[in-house]
Design a protein around this nucleic acid. Sequence first.
DNA 1: CAGTTGACAGTCC
DNA 2: GGGACTGCCAACT
Length: 117
Amino acid sequence: MPAPAEVPLDFGGAVLEVVSAIPRGRVMTYGDVAAQLGSRGARAVGRVMAIEGSGLPWWRVVRADGRPPAGHEREALAHYRAEGTALLVPARPDGTGSDPDPLSYRLNLRAARWSPS
DNA sequence: CAGTTGACAGTCC
DNA sequence: GGGACTGCCAACT
């Protein structure tokens, strides 16, 4: 068979498939996931995660800025530290000791960004 | 059927 | 380097 029906699922089904294929310690941007689906609806991907994201490593899907989904930065951070994902901490010149935004961290996409073979 | 929303991305200032 | 605007796609009202 010339074409292994790998896309009998809907858009959401395909998203779940790609996100579920992301290895531990790696991350993908919404745009990359959408690109794998042959679509550019990065926003559509995000919405699928918000709905069907339950039961999936949604924290492995981050924005192009290297920031986790809005409203879940704290939850995602716990997963990143637990999986050893490459994180970039905002450099503190003085080291005041207090972070105005502890959730202002970013992921090192240059090292953690992964793409399916 | 049309408008609005939304776990975004890319470009311009 | 950071902020604002526009563009895209899919689902909801």
